[in-house]
């Protein structure tokens, strides 16, 4: 009950901030890029003919899961925590009858709600884009072509679980630092190192580097590691949430 009240109050705070625009526009990005490419170059739609759904989703979701989603999470985590820092409202929050744990969890749930909406919106926009392509070029014949629903759902669920690890780390950092540049810069660098680790370097064990997880989910060649990644993601999320909460409680009012 208490949690529901605090959660609602957190949702209200994001009203009229850029969180909403960032989510909607960010989620339409891949679809717009796909449409731009498909509609302005000659042979790219024809490339889809043999297995349209699978080819279409493979390219788009690789970009979305591996690159756009981590960037979105880094930005949105900072944005949410900065609402309190910018308005100097931490004291009011802690001076009101809400327990620290309710505030912490509500903020995290609010974050997850936005991330979940972002993933869902991406998929919805991609479907809309596909239908638009189909109406322009009926040869695609999307309605009679096979769509591997099960694979899509599995991929999206894996994505969400693995994303938790990044979002809980960023969540902690964003609450920790009053300075918005720090969580952003550290997040980008870690994400960047994640790309390099996945594709270039082989030194550290990738299974324990959360910023690589989403890329390993999105790109082929790491299927054998997926269950380890999910397990590790859950462990790391749990660890960072506990650590984050402890730090949050300890530092309250110092913001």
């Amino acid at each position: 009950m208490n949690l529901a009240i605090t959660f609602r109050s957190e949702l209200l705070k994001t009203k009229r901030t850029s969180a909403f625009y960032l989510t909607v526009f960010g989620a339409s990005f891949i679809t717009l890029m796909e449409l731009l490419e498909m509609l302005t170059t000659s042979d790219s739609v024809a490339r889809l003919y043999p297995d349209p759904w699978q080819i279409y989703f493979r390219i788009s979701l690789q970009m979305m899961i591996g690159m756009i989603l981590p960037l979105y999470m880094i930005l949105i985590c900072t944005l949410l925590a900065q609402i309190e820092f910018r308005n100097n409202t931490w004291k009011q929050v802690f001076g009101s009858p809400q327990s620290e744990v309710a505030v912490f969890i509500s903020k995290f749930l609010n974050l997850q709600f936005l991330i979940f909406s972002f993933i869902l919106l991406n998929v919805i926009f991609l479907f809309l884009g596909a239908f638009l392509l189909n109406s322009i070029d009926p040869k695609l014949d999307l309605f009679h072509k096979y769509l591997d629903w099960q694979h899509l759902l599995t991929l999206l669920s894996k994505t969400f679980v693995c994303s938790l690890a990044i979002s809980s780390i960023q969540f902690w950092m964003s609450l920790r630092f009053r300075n918005f540049i720090l969580p952003l810069a550290i997040g980008f660098v870690l994400w960047f190192a994640g790309i390099m680790m996945t594709f270039e370097y082989k030194t550290i064990s990738k299974e324990w580097y959360p910023y690589s997880y989403l890329m390993m989910i999105a790109f082929p060649g790491f299927e054998d590691k997926h269950s380890t990644l999910i397990l590790n993601a859950l462990i790391l999320t749990f660890g960072f949430l506990i650590g984050g909460f402890w730090d949050f409680k300890r530092r309250k009012g110092k913001g």
Binding site: K15, R86, K91, Q92, Q98
Partner: peptide
């Protein structure tokens, strides 16, 4: 210390944030 509220919200919305709390 300083007045504490959310600059992007109206007076009513600011109070609404805490109403249920």
């Amino acid at each position: 210390e300083n007045p504490s509220f959310y600059g992007h919200l109206t007076a009513r919305e600011n109070l609404e944030v805490y109403r249920n709390v």
